[in-house]
């Protein structure tokens, strides 16, 4: 009796896992197959692979109407810049909230906690009008520029990053700070020489999460980046297949793979750290 139920449950478990695996792999398989299918259009893509070619990949790097490398670079630049700056700037604020006692600290933290639940794109109409105005004075950081988009992303990342980092800094023992202070270190020295090296791993994870988040961001990027050469991969690929869904399917699949593979590798190799960061409050999906 006992063995038969456990056998039954093992069979059920495996059935469940395999159904999920098929569900998971299906689109991945379709993309890989389409990217190597020389006909390149959705119409002629078949479920079973028929022929193999690099044509779609070549098209991405040679067709001047599809500046794929530029998109990839734009995404890389803006995601890296946002990850580095937002963590670097956020770390300072988090350090102050965690280690110092000052007037308004509690209120500041409470407001921060509330502010960080609003994604910045909720105010998209206001951001648009604001940045339109900025454009008339400073085109380099106004509407249509990567610089302006970066500023919006940085502002939006502050709440979450400060909150996440503060939580981590709270776990670094105070004794270390005190020891350094007895040795005559100033607050800045404690920050640079004690806190920064200790927090390096969590700073890296937060930066990585910011990077992935920025890479995925679509709303503000599509609103901001109207010029084809300023687009990020997300906006570029969307407009690319949005224009002619059937026609550009093969190159789109190839482009998706190129952009996704590095991220997937980073994610899988660092998953242990990333998952720790996730449960601390960041969500996706």
């Amino acid at each position: 009796m006992q063995t038969s139920t456990s056998k039954k449950s093992a069979v059920l478990s495996h059935a469940f896992i395999w159904v999920l695996i098929v569900f998971t792999i299906f689109p991945i398989y379709v993309v890989i197959e389409s990217s190597f299918n020389p006909t390149g259009s959705l119409a002629s893509s078949s479920f079973w692979p028929s022929s193999f070619s690099w044509k779609n990949y070549k098209m991405l790097f040679t067709d001047p109407a599809v500046p794929f490398t530029t998109w990839l670079m734009n995404s890389g630049i803006i995601a890296t810049a946002n990850a580095l700056f937002s963590v670097f700037i956020g770390a300072g604020s988090a350090f102050a909230f965690s280690r110092m006692r000052f007037k308004g600290r509690k209120l500041g933290l409470q407001s921060l906690l509330l502010v960080q639940v609003f994604p910045s794109f909720l105010a998209l109409a206001a951001i648009y009008v604001m940045m339109e105005k900025v454009y008339t004075v400073f085109p380099a950081i106004g509407l249509g520029s990567l610089g302006g988009l970066l500023l919006i992303y940085l502002g939006g990342a502050m709440g979450v990053n400060i909150w996440l980092l503060r939580g981590y800094i709270d776990t670094i023992p105070l004794e270390l700070d005190e020891a350094a202070r007895i040795d005559g270190a100033s607050t800045f020295q404690v920050y640079w020489l004690i806190f920064f090296p200790l927090a390096a791993p969590v700073l890296a994870v937060t930066a990585l999460l910011s990077f992935i988040g920025t890479f995925n961001e679509f709303v503000l990027a599509s609103l901001f980046l109207t010029d084809v050469h300023h687009r990020t991969v997300a906006v570029g690929l969307q407009s690319f297949i949005g224009a002619q869904f059937g026609q550009n399917w093969g190159p789109f699949a190839a482009g998706s793979l190129i952009a996704a593979v590095p991220l997937v590798i980073i994610f899988l190799s660092l998953q242990r750290f990333i998952i720790g960061g996730l449960t601390a409050g960041a969500t996706k999906g």
Binding site: L20, P27, F245, G246, A253, A260
Partner: peptide, 24 residues
């Protein structure tokens, strides 16, 4: 099984969009 989480979500969505296309 954690692959969907690692792939940039905007891409997965666009890919699924193509897969649900009526004709093709």
């Amino acid at each position: 099984l954690i692959l969907p989480y690692a792939i940039p979500s905007f891409m997965s969505i666009l890919i699924w969009g193509g897969m649900f296309n009526r004709q093709y």
